[in-house]
Amino acid sequence: MSARLCSVEEIAHQAYEIFQQLAPDNLSEQDIEQFNLHYEDYGFIEDSEPDDSWQDFVSLEIEPEHFVQVLIGIEYEDGDEVFAKILISRDLDAPFCHVLWKQNGSE
């Protein structure tokens, strides 16, 4: 039986909704203000295949076709500021999400 997967676009949208819900509890007020001020013009939601670093944070096997890595941040001239790096499952029958938040002025 094959997994029921939602599209990468749908899962990236879901990751952004999770970011919006959890950001007030995980980012500083200054980070939230910065994000809200610049997101419309310079913000990004970037999806990709999960990188190997997730194995340091989660104990499950990350199958690239079942998971998406989503970065949410602001693109500045001198580099990107990533506010959240999210690992999220595309499998509708096995929901999973893990967020790595920006910490103390670093990514």
Rank of each mutant, 00 (worst) to 15 (best):
L22W: 09
I45N: 07
E17S: 14
E9K: 12
H98P: 00
Q55N: 10
E49L: 07
D47K: 08
I62G: 02
Y16G: 01
F44Y: 14
I62K: 05
I32Y: 10
C6P: 01
S48M: 08
I86R: 04
V82R: 06
L87P: 00
E81D: 11
E77D: 13
D52Y: 09
G105E: 05
V82C: 07
R90W: 02
E33D: 12
E17I: 09
P50K: 04
A84M: 04
Q14V: 08
D56P: 02
Q14F: 09
Q69H: 06
V8R: 14
E9L: 09
D91Y: 03
H98L: 12
E81Q: 13
D51G: 12
E75T: 08
E9D: 15
V82Q: 00
E49C: 08
E61W: 06
S106F: 08
P24C: 06
V8I: 12
H13N: 15
Q55S: 11
G73Y: 02
E29Q: 13
S89R: 01
H66T: 07
G79I: 05
A3P: 01
A15Y: 02
Q30V: 09
H13F: 08
F67W: 04
S7F: 05
K85G: 00
E107T: 14
Y76A: 11
D80Y: 03
V70A: 00
N36L: 10
D93C: 08
L87M: 02
S28L: 06
F67M: 03
S2V: 13
P50W: 02
Q14G: 05
F67A: 05
D91L: 04
I45C: 13
F96D: 05
S59I: 05
D56W: 08
V68S: 09
N26A: 04
F19E: 01
R4Y: 12
F67G: 04
I62W: 02
L22S: 13
I62V: 13
G105H: 08
P24Y: 06
D56H: 14
F96A: 12
Q21L: 11
L100V: 13
E107L: 13
F19T: 00
D47T: 08
D31F: 03
Q103C: 14
Y42A: 14
F35K: 09
L60Q: 11
C97P: 05
V68F: 01
F57K: 10
F57G: 00
I62C: 00
E61S: 13
A15C: 04
V8Y: 09
E46H: 11
E29K: 10
W54H: 03
R4E: 15
V8T: 12
